[in-house]
């Protein structure tokens, strides 16, 4: 773990009309950490993600990636800088094969995007890369399935694969296990852990499964009603009284 900051949000705010979804958020993501963002529904986690990945324009504040201001950079340029994002709602290319889904992502950073008259399948480097990614996320044997025909759990893996094929330095996971059954979750967690540690990447994770968050993250930020409530190691967060009242208390109360 280093102390270097890879992504920073300064006084970040987003308002939808009168509703302030993200309210003056300051957050620093250190390099090579697994940073989880938790909070009850409507806490502004996904909105924060949309601001960090550039899907939505910010109302106020700045976003810095490796010290560079990227606040007004569109998503495709952020992707080129090395920010990858997966979605809470499965967001894939439904009528293309699994291989093509990932191959497209692998091709994005290459220099062959404007070759109108050569055959896409002749660029072996992207296919090799895709096969490697398919192996990593555990979709081997599914290469020629249409993405829409995959079961939900595998769609989530494909979602992950698309992000990985872009070879990002910073991965934004928006509820990677959303909708998965509890038996499938450990496998996906292992994959996530592997891909983040393997290439010393940094990950930001929005997740609802507390056991998962507690076990894999290095730092946890708790959000509530658009604000940062607390930040610290999993251990510190679990002990934090404010957090317990706002969020964990409810959940653990239900469980016990």
């Amino acid at each position: 773990m280093t102390q270097e900051t890879i992504l920073e949000a300064r006084n970040l705010s987003k308002a939808f009309g009168g509703l302030v979804a993200v309210d003056n958020v300051n957050i620093q993501i250190r390099k090579e950490t697994m940073h989880a963002i938790i909070g009850p529904n409507g806490a502004g986690k996904t909105t924060l993600f949309n601001l960090l990945s550039g899907v939505m324009p910010v109302t106020q504040g700045r976003v810095l990636f490796k010290g560079e201001d990227i606040t007004s950079l569109p998503p495709h340029k952020r992707a080129h800088l090395g920010i990858g994002r997966s979605y809470q709602i499965t967001n894939i290319f439904p009528n293309l094969s699994v291989l093509e889904n990932i191959r497209l992502a692998a091709q994005a950073k290459g220099k062959d995007n404007f070759k109108l008259f050569s055959k896409a399948d002749d660029f072996q480097q992207y296919i090799d890369k895709s096969v490697e990614v398919i192996d990593t996320v555990g979709l081997s044997g599914r290469e020629f399935f249409l993405a829409r025909d995959l079961p939900h759990g595998e769609k989530r893996k494909l979602e992950l694969g698309i992000m990985l094929a872009c070879d990002p330095e910073l991965l934004l996971f928006d509820e990677p296990t959303a909708g998965m059954s509890s038996e499938q979750v450990p496998e996906l967690i292992n994959i996530i852990r592997k891909v983040v540690q393997q290439k010393s990447r940094t990950a930001i994770l929005v997740e609802h499964r507390m056991d998962m968050v507690m076990s894999i993250s290095d730092v946890i930020t708790v959000m509530n009603q658009g604000r940062v409530l607390a930040e610290g190691s999993p251990h510190e967060i679990a002990k934090n009284e404010q957090v317990q009242i706002a969020y964990l208390g409810d959940l653990y109360g239900e469980l016990t």
Partner: peptide, 14 residues
């Protein structure tokens, strides 16, 4: 890919 999913396309850098 633009036909299939514009948002995703943008997110992977196109």
């Amino acid at each position: 890919a633009n036909r299939e999913n514009e948002d995703r396309m943008r997110m992977i850098g196109y």
